[in-house]
Design a binder for these strands. Structure first.
Lengths: 350, 350
DNA sequence: TTTATTTACGCAATCGTTCCCGGTAACGAT
DNA sequence: ATCGTTACCGGGAACGATTGCGTAAATAAA
């Protein structure tokens, strides 16, 4: 059971040296003679010595681990982001502790407390769709915890942030719908206070306005659980379908909402794209195999994860408090597929 | 930057007590008077004291963290399993360090070494599709590291294991194909030495044999990267399509392979299910929205993760070396959808 | 030869916590 | 008055590693 590891003390005893000498020999200090070094190094090698990371952490007052909080890992965008995060973290000798908020503020708070109690060196977070109270994060930040936000950021907290150009992505997607003949474009969105919702709806509204279409505020359905609960999406779509002016297309602001809409529409036997166009943010690599293949706005999730981690490590390893924070904005990609191209119905209108 | 936490020493100094007394008061020891306890507890509460987990780990020689190795987290089966793992681990005060092999033996080895160097208390692993050298795992196991295998297990190492009845799942799926009129059933499988491949192909072969069909060994295509590289699947499917006896259905043995086959077949404009039936193991919740909706064999991933973690914690926290190991086998679920039902073509034949 | 300098190593403190030893009162029993 | 208990608390070692400082011996400079 015990799994007794070799310690520096064991080596010292075996070789008749002091622990300090062994430690210094292993770190290749100049004060140790080449012969002693060789002796120690060979012994360590042969007996497979590895420094105890916990003892090191205690001594150096750092755990070499970073905390990550996302909505859920079973979500392509986040799992891809995590891939990026891990690749950088591991290369720098950090390990990653992942936790999921499942779009719940309470769970996010619990996870945050858990992570900090595990003494992480830094935090990468994309807040839950429910989160509009940032006091805990603020407190953490003020206490000196290095934090990097990505995707769903918090404007009020000044630190590094990594996002995509949500406004532009949404603008392009909405414009695309309009160009394809759709005129009554609804939106199924996350909670209104969420950064991505604000930005994406901003692009959506601007595109409509720029094309001379009115912005139908009643046609924006907010899902406070971000699609985690399908019934919420169902309700939203239902209301849209029974509105006075039934929409002919939907713009969904996140992965779960996009596929959620498709699910509901198919259950209602509503033809996409003929009766209803559908475009949304998504990173699922199955979207092209769906029926119909989905037009999506894709985020460079992996790169975002990499970038966020690099920024975080920079923060962690900086000697003096960082004051100069930056917000990195990457580009989205609009991938046009069948769900927004209703040739027969709209070709003449366009 | 520093994030100075309150220590037991600080409390001792502030209250004019010794560290031992404070420690004991916090742990509610009988040797401390109620008044002192109250004093300490209140001070700790008010100043938000939290024991330093790293110091505890060093003292107790346990990190309260467990390592998890899977092929990739951006895979529904694994992300669902991880959800199960985390739910149990967190409830027991353990944190989870996840790493991905990406179906590569080398990466798996590196991750394993990394995890053990981070002094994890135990390991939950589903080996990569490339792994057929278990010496490192064996060594780890012999040194006393608690290990639980799930999904892709290693027969030669005696410890707890959590799997599904792969044989039965494959048998049912294949039988289902036969019942629906398919007669020339090929298989796209993982590497032959992988436990799940062996078991699933076993069920596949048995079903064919039991229905008086010959087992076409040439029609089993092995993908050593488990679908991580699409070209590999493409090659396999290609060979099947150009075989003397072209198959009329494919049984795929894992998530990536199942969707990979669909991807290739669609690219080749082969009609599923009419020209080619398709069934496979998968846990993606998008399968019903695919074109065509996929018939799948689903695993209780979340439960498997929960179970594996409970077994691991049992192993970790057991006082004496455990000798009685068990293999838990859960049931799969066959979900029939459009990809295996070619009414027009086969109804008459069946 | 004496002194200064270098070389090579050990001692002990430190990180935060627990816990094995003690130790000191107070009190009752002898 | 002496002893044994009990209740309560502190000292200090330990967990594994690093590191400032001290110091012996060896060498160089005077």
């Amino acid at each position: 059971m015990k799994f007794e590891a070799l310690t520096i003390k064991d080596i010292a005893k075996a070789l008749g040296l002091s622990t300090s000498t062994v430690s210094r020999a292993l770190r290749d200090s100049y004060e140790i003679s080449p012969e002693t070094k060789k002796l120690v190094l060979e012994y360590a090698q042969k007996n497979n010595y590895h420094p105890n990371p916990i003892a090191l952490s205690l001594k150096e007052r750092r755990s070499r681990s970073i905390g990550v909080v996302v909505a859920e890992i079973a979500n392509s965008f986040f799992s891809q982001s995590i891939n990026g995060i891990e690749s950088i973290a591991y290369n720098n000798g950090y390990n990653v502790i992942i936790s999921q908020s499942r779009e719940s503020f309470d769970r996010e708070l619990i996870n945050l407390q858990y992570l900090t109690s595990r003494s992480i060196d830094g935090l990468i977070i994309s807040v839950s769709t429910e989160t509009n109270d940032f006091s805990y994060l603020k407190e953490l930040h003020e206490k000196g915890m290095p934090i990097v936000f990505f995707d769903r950021i918090v404007d009020e907290i000044e630190t590094h942030k990594v996002i995509v150009d949500n406004y532009k992505g949404a603008y392009e997607a909405t414009s695309h719908l309009i160009k394809n003949g759709y005129r009554h474009i609804a939106s199924v969105a996350n909670a209104a206070y969420l950064s991505i919702a604000k930005e994406r709806l901003g692009g959506y509204r601007a595109a409509l306005a720029d094309h001379g279409l009115e912005v139908p505020e009643a046609m924006i359905k907010y899902c406070h659980h971000g699609g985690m609960i399908l019934s919420e999406v169902e309700e939203g779509v239902n209301e849209l379908l029974h509105a006075d002016q039934k929409p002919d297309a939907i713009f969904a602001t996140s992965d779960k909402l996009t596929t959620g809409c498709l699910r509901i529409l198919k259950a209602r036997k509503i033809n996409v794209p003929k009766e209803m166009g559908l475009v949304g943010f998504s990173n699922t690599d199955l979207t092209e195999l769906l029926d119909p293949p989905l037009t999506i706005i894709k985020q460079p999730a992996f790169e975002m994860g990499e970038l966020a981690t690099n920024l975080l490590l920079q923060l962690i390893e900086s000697k003096r408090p960082v004051k100069d924070f930056e917000t990195k904005t990457l580009a989205t990609e609009l991938i046009v597929r069948g769900s927004t191209v209703a040739k027969n119905k709209f070709k003449s209108l366009a």
